[in-house]
């Protein structure tokens, strides 16, 4: 019961709003947030893919160093970094232990270490880029690189509707709680209580399915009258929407600097 209550407290509407506001506004003053989304995409498309195919540990470590610097400038919270590192190390560790069962030895350690570094570089690259972009930048960027208008609409719609949906879910869940009856015995390891709450969490979706269906109908009708179907199919609307996007000097400088660093790595270590 205690557990369920804590969980529902976490899911309060105000809390969700705070979280959303945080991700939406949180980082607007950092360097990366001022870059054009295209710059970040290009940058990420390199550091998010190539590490897979590099096996030189020095180059990878050099890249990792670079990523640590960028994450520092992106003001990523140390907690996220810690969780990420622990997760990756744990994954590598469990692989190692199981590998030992299958006749592995210390020679297994090195490839695993390289793999972990690779994964780290890739994750840090994506954190740098995607934590720096606010949702508007991200959806504009996606629109610019040719992702259909429906996707950027959906991102906006998500931000619009989430608090409403959470509130409704919260109310329905509470109705279940107040009118239902939690098991009196907690069961072994709280099993009964947990399964009761999980069942409620699942059943609460039945009412939500119906009410969201009603919502969707009005929304789509409104979209029709607001010309969104027209907008999705006309390139000039896209142009109008994206007229603020512009590659600036700092975009080029950032890309060039990154490139030079990578070149340097290759020249020295290959």
């Amino acid at each position: 019961m205690e557990y369920g209550r804590k969980w529902m407290d976490k899911l309060s509407v105000e809390q969700v709003k705070i979280e959303l506001l945080h991700t939406a506004y949180g980082n607007s003053d950092i360097f990366f947030a001022k870059l054009d989304p295209r710059t970040l995409f290009i940058w990420y498309s390199y550091f998010g893919i190539t590490p897979w195919f590099l096996h030189n540990e020095y180059i990878l470590l050099g890249m990792l160093l670079f990523m640590l610097v960028t994450t520092y400038f992106a003001k990523i919270s140390p907690l996220i970094m810690l969780i990420l590192s622990l997760g990756l190390l744990g994954q590598g560790g469990s692989l190692l232990i199981i590998a030992l069962f299958f006749g592995g030895n210390w020679a297994t350690l090195m490839p695993l270490f390289i793999l972990t570094v690779k994964l780290m570089v890739i994750s840090l690259a994506s954190i740098t880029v995607f934590c720096s972009m606010n949702p508007t930048q991200l959806s504009n960027g996606l629109l610019k690189i040719g992702v259909p208008g429906q996707v950027s609409f959906s991102i906006a719609y998500g931000y619009r509707m989430l608090p409403t949906l959470v509130e409704e879910y919260h109310h329905v869940f509470q109705s279940f709680r107040l009118r239902g009856k939690a098991p009196e015995k907690r069961g072994f390891l709280y099993i009964r209580t947990i399964s009761y709450f999980v069942k409620l969490a699942v059943m609460s979706f039945y009412p939500l399915l119906l009410s969201t269906a009603k919502r969707a109908r009005t929304t789509v009708e409104a979209l029709e009258t607001k010309g969104s179907m027209y907008g999705f199919n006309h390139p000039e609307v896209k142009k109008l929407k994206l007229k603020t996007l512009k590659m600036k000097k700092r975009d080029y400088l950032f890309l060039i600097a990154s490139f030079l660093y990578v070149v340097l790595l290759f020249v020295y270590f290959y």
Binding site: A24, K214, T219, A222, T225, S228
Partner: peptide, 13 residues
Amino acid sequence: YVYQDFENQIVSP
């Protein structure tokens, strides 16, 4: 047209 369930016709954040 402003709907009766006007909340759902607001689509942007």
